[in-house]
Design a protein around this nucleic acid. Structure first.
Lengths: 346, 346
DNA sequence: TTGTATGCGTTATCAC
DNA sequence: GTGATAACGCATACAA
C-alpha cells in the first residue's frame, strides 16, 4: 500500500506537496503537480482514511442506525424492510454530492444494540437515529458527544434535532375519509410495535379521531410488528370478533397488505365487505389487489432533511435544535371502497 | 471528546493499560481494570476509530458499491430497489456478529462513480462490488490493493472471488415450464439493462432455451432498466406487434409487474390472454394480482456468502479465488397460467 | 512555491 | 502487571 511518503520520494517532492496536490491546493506549480499526479496514478495511491481522519479530525462518514423488525431470521423471502430502505437511499442520495459516506447498522428487536452503537459512534462524524433505536437517555448522552439527528423518533424529545412526519394529521384525514366519506362506523385498527413512535402516534390519532365521531367505535388489535405476517395475525383476531369491522386501518402498508390477503383467504371481499387502509405508500401497496388506500409519507424528504441538518451540525452549525414535521398525504386508491380511479399509471 | 490519555490520567494508569482494558486483555489486575472501567464509563470514552485504524492497520469497515437503476431522481414514490436492499440486509446480518460495519455507496447510471469508489476504498478493509459497478479493468486494479468480492458480476472474470446465482438454470427451467408445461409457442422477453450481467444472462439463457424448442419464437424487447416503468414500456411495445406473445418473461420481478399492470390496463387478461413471469422473487411479486410466477434467487445466501468470503480474505486467507454459483428455484404462482395453488400463505 | 517538523489517538514492543 | 515510547499515514503551521 503506497503512502504519501512513497509518492513524495518517487516524485522528488515533500509529503506536504503531495498532500497539497491531493487536496487540490493551487499553491503548487503546475509542472510539480503534474509530476506528483503522474506518480499517484502510477502507484495507485489512495490516501488512508484513518490517517486522514486522525489528522483532520473528521472522518467523512455518517452513521445510520435503525431497527429491523418483523423479520424472522430464518425467513428466506423477506417482506423487504421498505421504510428503512427508502430512507437509506434518500440519505445516500444527499451524501452522493459530498465526500461523506454512509455507514449503517441495523438492530434487531430484542438483541443488544447499545454496544454496537457505541462502537459505531467512534467511526463516524455524526449519527442518524431512526425510530427509537436507542433509549432516550442514551440518545441524549450520545448527542453530547456527537451531532445526532433523530428520524421518526418520539416527539417531545426537546433539545434535539429531529425530523418526523405528520402521523396524526395523516390519520385524522384518513379517519375522516373512512367515517365521514364512506360512513363506516365499526372501525378496526391493526396496531404496530409499541416501541415504534410512528406506530403509537398513528394508533392514538386514528382512535381519537374516529371516536370523536358519534357512533364510531374502534376495535384495536395491538402488538403487530410492521410485518405482513403480523397483519395477517391481526386480521385473524378481527375475524374472530362477533362483529367484524367495516373498515380496518393499519399501522403501515405491509400490515395492511397482510390484513387484505388474510381477509381474502377467508372469503371476505375487500373493500366490499371490509375496507382496509395502510400507511407509508410503498410500492407493494400500489400493486396489491385492491390497490391500497394509504397515507403517504415523504421518505425522500425525510431522509434528505435529516441528512442536510446533520451535515450542517458537523460543519459546526450552532443553530437552535429543531424538530421538523413533514406533511403526509392521503392517497386514495380502492381498498377503502372508493371507485376505480381512472388515473393513468398509479 | 475524551481520549485514552484522559482516561489514563483520571484512573492513574498508563495509556497502555487503558488500551489493555478496552481490548479485554486479561493481563491486567481486576481492581485496576475496575478502576479504569469506572473512568471510561464516567467520561463516556469511546475509542476513536481513525486512530485505531491507523494503529491496527485495520478499519473494521467493509464497503458495498452498487448501481441504482431505473429510478428517476424526481420520483417521489420509488419502486424500491429491492434487489440491492435485500443484499444490504443480508450483508449487514453477517456483519452484525463481527466488529465490522458496512459502508455503502450507490452509483447512478451514467454519473461518474469511479472517483467515489476510489475515495471509498481508502475507508474500508475490503469491498463488495455488486453487478458491474465498475469496469473490469478497474476492478482488477482495485483487487490488487484490497480484498474484493464481486456479487452478480459478469462471469468469466477469472482470478477474482465472486458469488452469483444460476441465472441460466433458472431461465431454462422457466422456459421449459412455459413451453413444455403450458405449451406456449409465441414467447416474449422484456429485457433489462445491457450493462447488468444478470439481465444479459437471463435474456440469453431464456432465448436459447426457448428457441431450442421446435416452433418457439422469442420476441425480445431490450433496453429495460429493471424498473416497473420500463416493464410498462416493454408491454406497450409488445402490444404494438402484429402478434402479441402468449407468454412474456421478464428480466426481473419489477419489470414483470410493470408488464402485468400495463397489459391489464389495456384490457388484456393475465394469464388468460398473456402469461407473464419475473425473476428475483421479491415481496411485491407475491402481492400482485395475479401472483407472479418467477425464479427465486437466494438473496440472503448471496450476501452472506460474499461477506463471509470477504471477511476471510481480510483475515488473510490465501485460498484460491473462487466463483460460486448459487442455485435458483422456479417459483410457480399464477401469472404463468397455472391454477390457483391452495398453499397456506404465499 | 516548497520543505520541515509536529500532532492527531491508538496499539504494540519493549523494558521494568 | 504495568509503564514509557515508537510507530501508523496524513495534514498543517511555520520556515525557508
Amino acid at each position: 500500500m503506497p503512502t504519501v511518503y512513497d509518492v513524495a520520494r518517487l516524485a522528488g517532492v515533500s509529503t506536504a506537496t503531495v498532500s497539497r496536490v491531493m487536496r487540490g491546493s493551487d499553491l503548487v506549480r503546475p509542472d510539480t503537480r503534474a509530476r506528483v499526479l503522474a506518480v499517484i496514478d502510477e502507484v495507485g495511491f489512495v490516501p488512508d482514511a484513518s490517517a486522514q481522519g486522525l489528522s483532520r479530525r473528521r472522518k467523512d462518514i455518517i452513521g445510520l442506525v435503525a431497527l429491523e423488525r418483523g423479520v424472522d431470521e430464518t425467513d428466506i423471502e423477506r417482506d423487504g424492510l421498505l421504510f428503512v430502505d427508502q430512507l437509506v437511499h434518500a440519505v445516500e442520495a444527499v451524501l452522493r454530492g459530498t465526500g461523506c459516506s454512509l455507514l449503517l447498522s441495523f438492530g434487531r428487536n430484542g438483541e443488544p444494540f447499545q454496544g454496537r452503537i457505541r462502537a459505531l459512534s467512534g467511526k463516524v462524524d455524526g449519527l442518524l437515529v431512526v425510530e427509537d433505536a436507542m433509549p432516550a437517555a442514551q440518545l441524549r448522552a450520545l448527542s453530547r458527544r456527537l451531532p445526532v439527528v433523530a428520524i421518526a423518533a418520539s416527539p417531545g424529545e426537546g433539545g434535539l434535532d429531529a425530523v418526523r412526519v405528520d402521523n396524526a394529521g395523516g390519520m385524522q384525514a384518513l379517519a375522516a375519509h373512512l367515517a365521514t366519506g364512506h360512513g363506516y362506523r365499526r372501525l378496526g385498527f391493526a396496531g404496530g410495535p409499541p416501541d415504534a413512535p410512528d406506530a403509537v402516534e398513528r394508533l392514538a390519532a386514528f382512535a381519537a379521531a374516529a371516536r370523536a365521531r358519534p357512533g364510531c367505535t374502534v376495535d384495536v388489535v395491538p402488538g403487530g410488528d410492521f410485518s405482513e405476517a403480523s397483519g395477517r395475525t391481526a386480521a385473524r383476531v378481527l375475524l374472530s370478533r362477533e362483529a367484524v369491522p367495516e373498515a380496518v386501518a393499519c399501522a403501515n402498508d405491509q400490515m395492511a397488505i397482510g390484513v387484505i390477503r388474510e381477509l381474502q383467504r377467508s372469503g371476505i371481499r375487500v373493500p366490499a365487505d371490509v375496507a382496509v387502509t395502510g400507511f407509508d405508500n410503498i410500492f407493494p401497496g400500489r400493486v396489491v389487489d385492491p390497490p391500497l388506500t394509504t397515507v403517504g409519507q415523504p421518505f425522500r424528504e425525510l431522509g434528505a432533511r435529516a441528512t442536510t441538518r446533520l451535515l450542517e451540525r458537523i460543519a459546526g452549525s450552532e443553530a437552535q435544535p429543531r424538530a421538523d414535521v413533514l406533511p403526509t398525504e392521503l392517497v386514495i386508491r380502492r381498498s377503502c371502497g372508493c371507485p376505480v380511479t381512472p388515473s393513468p399509471a398509479t
